[in-house]
Nucleic acid binder design. Structure first.
Length: 553
RNA sequence: UGCCCGAUAGUAUAAGGGUAGUACAACUGAUUUUGGUUCAGUAUGUCGUGGUUCGAAUCCAUGUCGGGCAACCA
């Protein structure tokens, strides 16, 4: 059976264009503004733009849309490049809208000469007023009557720095009565005496998005300029510029941006979280930034798979976070090394086990025999998870309880004989016996137990810091929730366990490794780790059928 | 009440006039030395109303609902 995947609407357009001969190959672009870090929403756009070019044998430019020097920085340029590379994509050309400032200036002069642009001295308030409303046409002011020569001179003077910020703008002359507000003589150049991260102080006038983006596309001969829905009304202006400038006819297509439950997808809000200290930087593992997710332990292939599964369409959407979690688990399950780590220890003493130790083999990954085995020390005193013992077991609980037997992973079956408590009645120790014939891999005991626990030998345990993350927001649809988005921050999104007990094999592992702490979740080494101190981030929990059972009651 | 975009299970996304399918989520069960994985199965859907047609999610009309548009942001 063929399992050809159906095409999304953009792929359909491209295939038609290729088939009809409109284009012989395609060129796309990813056009970030370097004013913040990339997030998972950008990943969707990156996968789309680069993925299309890859699929149809075209190319993709990385173009920084750097037309607003007051918000843009080189730091962001570097992080964006890092993130795209990490996601697994290679751009054909690294470009900047600021490369085209001279050309763009020329385009503006062309418009002036054609009588299609004029310098306006009005304040932004006046311009807004004259714009009218969606139902009331706007009006032109006296500046619109300036001669071509006057406009040319004034625009040159603007460039020469003769005017203060905000004192003049260049406007395209289109239609003050257009039902599309963007066509009511839009501002295309404004004065900003600001230092630009690439052009320095060469310019004090900068083009607006609408007078830079489409032209940049045209200059680069972008065949399919793909952007998000909010740019739909801009398309008329995009085309107007192309037609009146007579430049390469790039075409704009719009798709619905990604929204994810329990997260925000706005650079402005993300920046706020960073600046106000709600998180520890752009790469905080709780952030929906690419760098945050990377630090958290997400793999690039999981993110690509996610972007593939969510599809591309024009309707607004809010994707279940669980789909992202599914994609990471699916990937990590295949590659993560299994290790045993106890988060909240309860001591188990095996009363019939001799002094000393033995080393037991345990598979690194049951899904991948090629991953091999490691040796784990076993001894008389162990730690198990406190939640894996119940003095009076709940129904369907098949972990350790008085008189009950469980398997210790890769080791023996033990039976709980006695519970030791302190003066306050807190359980301090559980005393068990083990069944020597039940050794893992050589079990002749004939005993079947339902539960298998992870454990660590007390004498051999190494301590590690473990950071557990929960969702950053408490509501599903953060962007549309009542009140300020910060009202919905989950104060318990980070739990630090300073002293978890880990099997010693973890000491030898390296930063690139992914782990599954058995029965606990997927983890990866954090950059805060030092030779003397291991720090792990929980990428995602394991699916927890027991927790579900407990919740049902 | 101007213009533009959209509407298919809980969430996404297919079906392009001919059996409404897939994934995630949910629920059952089997397997399991991870209550993981894997496997098998169940339930839930075409926004309303007219029309065209032998036949409509699909075409037409109309209504409803949701979103966007009046930054010297992108």
């Amino acid at each position: 059976m063929s399992e050809e995947k159906s095409l999304n609407f953009i792929e359909e357009i491209i295939e038609e264009d290729l088939k009809s001969g409109k284009h012989s190959s395609i060129t796309t672009r990813f056009p970030p503004e370097p004013n913040g870090y990339l997030h998972i929403g950008h990943a969707k756009s990156i996968c789309l733009n680069f993925g299309l070019a890859k699929k149809y044998g075209g190319q993709t430019n990385l173009r920084f849309d750097d037309t607003n020097p007051t918000t843009e920085e080189t730091e962001y340029v570097e992080s964006i490049k890092d993130d795209i590379r990490w996601l697994g994509f290679a751009w054909s050309n690294e470009l900047y809208a600021s490369n085209y400032f001279e050309q763009l200036y020329g385009f503006a002069v062309t418009l002036i000469k054609k009588g299609l642009a004029y310098v306006d001295d009005s304040s932004s308030e006046e311009i807004a007023e004259q714009k009218g409303t969606p139902t009331v046409p706007g009006t032109r002011n006296r500046f619109a009557d300036r001669t071509m020569e006057e406009n040319l001179q004034l625009f040159a003077d603007m460039r020469a720095g003769k005017f203060a910020d905000g004192s003049k703008v260049l406007r395209a002359r289109i239609d003050m009565a257009s039902p599309n507000m963007l066509l009511r003589d839009p501002i295309i150049y404004r004065i900003k005496h600001a230092h630009h991260h690439r052009t320095g102080d060469n310019w004090c006038i900068y083009p607006m998005y609408d007078f830079a983006h489409g032209q940049s596309d045209a200059i680069e001969k972008i065949t399919h300029s793909i952007c998000t829905l909010e740019f739909i009304p801009h398309r008329d202006l995009y085309n107007w510029c192309i037609e009146n400038l007579g430049i390469y006819p790039s075409r704009q297509y719009e798709f619905a941006r990604l929204n994810l439950t329990y997260t925000i997808m706005s650079k402005r809000k993300l920046l706020q979280l960073v600046n106000e200290g709600h998180v520890n930087g752009w790469d905080d593992p709780r952030m929906s930034t690419i760098s945050g997710m990377r630090r958290r332990g997400y793999t690039a292939s999981a993110i690509r798979e996610f972007c593939d599964r969510i599809g591309v369409a024009k309707r607004e959407n809010l994707i279940d976070f669980s789909l992202l979690e599914f994609c990471v688990r699916e990937d990590l399950n295949k590659i993560a090394l299994r290790r045993m780590v106890v988060f909240d220890p309860l001591k188990v003493v095996i009363t019939n086990y001799p002094e000393g130790e033995e080393w037991l083999a345990s598979e690194n990954n049951p899904e991948d025999p090629a991953a091999g085995h490691r040796e784990i020390p076993f001894s008389r005193e162990l730690y198990i998870e406190r939640e894996d013992f119940m003095e009076t077991p709940a129904k369907k609980y098949f972990r350790l309880a008085p008189g009950m037997m469980v398997r210790l992973k890769s080791a023996y079956i033990i039976k709980c004989e006695e519970v030791v408590k302190d003066v306050n009645g807190n359980i301090t120790e559980v005393r068990c016996t083990y069944i020597p014939e039940s050794k893992s891999g050589a079990d002749t005991s004939g005993i079947n137990v339902k539960g298998t626990l992870h454990w660590v030998s007390v004498a051999h345990a190494v301590t590690a810091e473990v950071r557990l993350y929960d969702r950053l927001f408490k509501v599903e649809d953060v962007a549309n929730a009542e009140g300020d988005f910060k009202d919905h921050i989950n104060e318990a999104s980070l739990t630090v366990l300073p002293n978890a007990y880990a099997e010693p094999a973890l000491l030898n592992d390296t930063a690139d490794d992914r782990y599954q702490f058995i029965r606990k979740g997927y983890f990866s080494l954090d950059k805060d780790s030092t030779p003397g101190k291991l720090v792990f981030n929980r990428t995602v929990t394991l699916k927890d059928g027991w927790a579900k059972e407990v919740k049902k009651g």
